[in-house]
Design a protein around this nucleic acid. Structure first.
Lengths: 199, 199, 199, 199
DNA sequence: GATGAATGAGAGTTCATTCAT
DNA sequence: TATGAATGAACTCTCATTCAT
């Protein structure tokens, strides 16, 4: 039996952070290795290419986003409409903490990848597309629950587009926050998300 | 009084297209020169750096966006609320044409730059920030006109945030369209923009 | 008394094939292991270096060449001059079969190694040299038998050079066949080999 | 106007030498640059790839072989059959000089490339194939002249195959010389070439 | 005995930029 | 004014080999 280590996971986690902060092309393989405490020569034992790492980093980011933000926000014990504001709240808290540490406002990992890698790597674009689909499903289920409880005045058939609108608003809010390097945008825009739930 | 060399303008126009399509880092100076029909050695006669070109390309993109989309959409003879849908309509038409030509859906030039260069180049980030501010002003003026005409039920003090919400929604819609490589998203989401105008 | 591990033999056989097809430097240790179904870590349990494997692969190739081509061709029951044409015939049949399977025409394993490793690894060069000497001996014995039977008009002292000429012609024929990727060259040139047997 | 230099030609000449001596894969781009007095970064200004350089080096080698060996040997004022021995003589002289300088016996540039790059790069294989065709044409014209003068007893229709046999013998002789690292092989085998010219 | 994990040295290549003309 | 030539630093990636288990 050979050795075992969590080097691969360290590489994924480090890459996720660095890509999020400075984008894919602005981060080199060597830098990722250095920061992950992995020798540069080892990288290609774990990953066939930098691109493959990006895909796994995306995957990891999705897992974290689900467990850290989506699942708590869209928990069953949260009132349907509160789920949406709670998602914004969690993300705002994260970014607010960044700001206090004088870190850059990162926005959404998936949204940031779109501009740079969407046209470059079809596999990554597809993964981001499915991630967005998954997020939309959370919005949809909240909307359906809200309809069932008579909290909103939306036709059942309009749920998908309405969820898409929520997703667009969410991604747009984070994009603007990143562009302005200001977390407060997220807080300010949170109540406006609910306006998208009218009929 | 000689105009700026035509070569310079060709470089700017070419760069704008290529950056929009494939992002900043994925396009090389030589490639821009080649496609613009400018000799590679001449580049640094016209621009101090690739970064400076990006700034001018952004500038050029902003001019075009204003004259091609913002000015027609937010013309005085258009009813205030129609201005917003008209902006979405113009952008949808552009992207729809792309789609028919089997080109990639590009989304928003400024939004695409955010993920890649926001953290890298402070000057570019600032320019994008002011561009967003300028766009928001168009939304604000439309909202103010709508309030004056009693078309919407918004407090005057809420106009800025409301405009910010519109901008976020607009950017988010284009980001999703790029991610899904599908122009129809823009058309589907257009009516939802107006929901953000309630009190 | 256990035989050499089967894994080792698989590595040798695989290496021989791959080296013959794509040359020494174009084939990596990991690829050999993978194709031989041997775990990459095990390689250096069986061989001290890639070079040592090459030497053993050469050895193996020599054994096969002897048993598959030389021994049948130079069998005592074959008329001396027919032995030479029979060698060409056997090699042609092999390459003709390759061609029908749309495989590349490989030429001579030993000849292919000469260009790449002759100057690089003295041990390998020496082994190829002795292989060539061995092959020449087969030609020499056939020539001696032909002289004894009065089938050719060669002085006894000219036998070594004459055999060298045959070897050169044989290697050259296979080199051209590989270069043209055409097995037919071998068949066409076969009768010309006998011309080298005149006085 | 930019600078001018013969750096490209120096790179080609150096590469030809090094590839001939130590084969393609055993020589790095950096080493070629260093020996040619060209900065490593400049390489890719002159050539799109190492492979492209190999193709040009082959081209250059072919030019030199023509002017240095083929043209003098196959000059009209040389008797047809002497042309063939003269080619061997010239090549022998070259290699003999190498030997006296304690250099390695290189054999034929084209023949050496076959084993290593034949299967790797189809363009290079094709170029070597046409080089061989060109060389064969020299042999053919000598044979035709010899037939016309009644110096050999060959049917006109056998000329191509006969020339092919000469080419094979020539390449084989150089291959053996390289394998044995001994130039004398070439001299010894020279007279045997003429045996291939009988009917 | 056998192997999964890891690695150092170096490969080929890219690219924003500089320089001589 | 304009440019062909050139470059250094950094890039992604390969690979024969080593090592802990």
């Amino acid at each position: 039996m050979g050795r075992t280590s969590d080097a691969k996971n360290r590489l994924i986690a480090t890459a996720q952070n660095l890509f999020w902060e400075r984008s894919y092309r602005n981060v080199g393989v060597n830098e990722i290795c250095e920061q992950a405490g992995v020798k540069p020569g080892s990288f290609y034992y774990f990953f066939p290419s930098k691109n493959a790492l990006a895909l796994e980093a995306l995957e990891d980011g999705w897992q974290q986003f689900q467990s850290h933000a989506l699942e708590p926000a869209f928990a069953m014990n949260v009132a349907p409409l509160d789920r949406i504001t709670k998602l914004f709240q969690i993300i705002y808290d994260d970014h607010s903490a960044m700001q206090e540490q004088n870190k850059r406002i990162l926005g959404c990992l998936f949204g940031s990848f779109v501009g740079e890698l969407g046209e470059q790597d079809e596999l990554i674009r597809q993964r981001i597309e499915t991630v967005f689909t998954e997020i939309r499903k959370y919005f949809e289920s909240a909307l359906e629950d809200a309809i069932a409880l008579g909290l909103v005045n939306i036709e059942f058939e309009d749920v998908p587009t309405c969820a898409e609108a929520l997703l667009a608003f969410y991604e747009g809010a984070l994009l603007i926050a990143r562009a302005k390097n200001d977390a407060e945008i997220i807080r300010e825009l949170t109540p406006h998300a609910l306006k998208l739930l009218s009929g």
